[in-house]
Structures are given as structure tokens and as C-alpha cells.
Amino acid sequence: MQTHEKLKLVGLRKSFGEHEVCRGIDLTVAEGSMVCLIGASGSGKSTLLRCINLLEPIDSGQILLDGFDIADPEIDPLPLRRRIGMVFQSYNLFPHMTAIENVMLAPRRVHRRSRAELRDEITAMFERFGLKSHIGHYPDQLSGGQQQRVAIIRALAMKPEIMLFDEVTSALDPEMVGEVLDVVRQLKSQRMTMVLATHEMSFAREAADWVCFLDKGVIAEAGPPAQIFGNPKEARTREFLSRIL
């Protein structure tokens, strides 16, 4: 398969004080593919995603977006961050704004587009994800699943080239997990490049193109889902999977 390396991490290291969370991570994400990061809590999945989104400065290594190192401290992270969308475990909607205002804020301020111009486009997105009737609701009037879908729309409205999902279903009641994962599936069908940190093993197995098992800040094992879930080579991968499945 002829693929473009959309995102490539080379020797990424990140520590908080004495504690090194990412200890040299190498990862390649092909354009239009979906990579799932699995591993125990504290294995460095979330930190890795935050580093890719330039929310955390890295200590060493490279983050190559289309071959261009975006982790270079000399360059302005703002325009680069706009090319990468991120969705968080706790939704992080802005509570003082309605759903549609949450979505409109960044395109209005960053892309200088008018509300009128955005309205149709965003309404269509709400409709596509089954939220049309909730467009004017405030976050506290929405269920967790609805809030998370609005958060995804908010990230998508910036037309990112890559989407990062940080355990987006972990805070949800079980009956709402499905509606959020459906959205992710929809994005996959549109060939959005995505990196997910997730605990939903069956979803990773079914939907991922590539699965990485993180353990103590390194990628202990990576491969297609069939291999990771069906025939893991590493003992610690087997141990992790046996605990979780």
C-alpha cells in the first residue's frame, strides 16, 4: 500500500520533574489510518497525545507532521496546533456557551469567519451526528455522550488533518459509549487520520489499522490488531491483555 507518513514521532521523551513519562517513543501514522494506543493507566498514552498537540513541550525527539518538525521550540505552535484536533476524556466543553457557540468560537476567532457563514455548515455537522435538536443547549443540559459528540464536532470544525482522541469514552456511562464510537467509525470511513488512546479493546480490535501497546513510557509492542490481540509476542502485552479482557 502506497501511503504518506502523515505523522511520525522519533525518540520522543517527556518527563515531569523526576518522573519520565515518555521514554523514547517512535511511531509512524500513515495518512487516513487509525492508530490505537492501549496500555495501563499511567503508561504515557495521554501525555503522548498532549505532546503531539503541543500542549506539553517535549524534552527531546521530533514530532514530524508531513515531514516537518513541529516540536522545534523556535517555531510558533499556534498555526500547527490548528492542524491537529483533540478530544478529551472529560469533554471540556465551555460551560458558559451553548453547543453551537462552543463549536463556532475557534473558527470565528482563528479563521475569522462570520457566524452566518458558519451556521449552515455547523448545523449540518450537528445533524450528521444526531444532535440537531441540541444545537442551542448548554453543556449541563446534555448527557455525557452528547457532550462528547459536541466536543468532537468542535474539534472537526477547525478542519484538522489529524484527530487525537484521549480516552474519549472512559468518563461515559456504558450505554453512551456506542454513540461516541459510532462517530469515530464515521470519521474512519471518511479516512480521517486518527490516534486514539483507549480502553475499548473490542473497538480497537475491530476498527484500528495499527495498535501500539504502551508500557512504562515506551511502545512495548506494535502491530496490526489481529497480531496484538490474537498473538502477542511480548509477555507484558499478554499479561496486560489477560488482565483486561
Binding site: 500542549l55 478529551f88 468560537l105 476567532r109
Partner: peptide, 23 residues
């Protein structure tokens, strides 16, 4: 996390303060 979410959308620090944090 509010700041993180706003940053991930590419808002400038002053916009984050003005539209997300201060209100």
C-alpha cells in the same frame, strides 16, 4: 482542562482568556 481544550483548538492566549477563562 478548559485552557487545554481552548489551546487545542488553536486559540491565541488572549482569546482563551477573553472568551473561555474570564467569562
Amino acid at each position: 482542562s478548559q485552557r487545554s481544550a481552548a489551546m487545542s483548538l488553536g486559540l491565541t492566549p488572549s482569546d482563551i482568556m477573553r472568551f473561555v477563562i474570564l467569562p
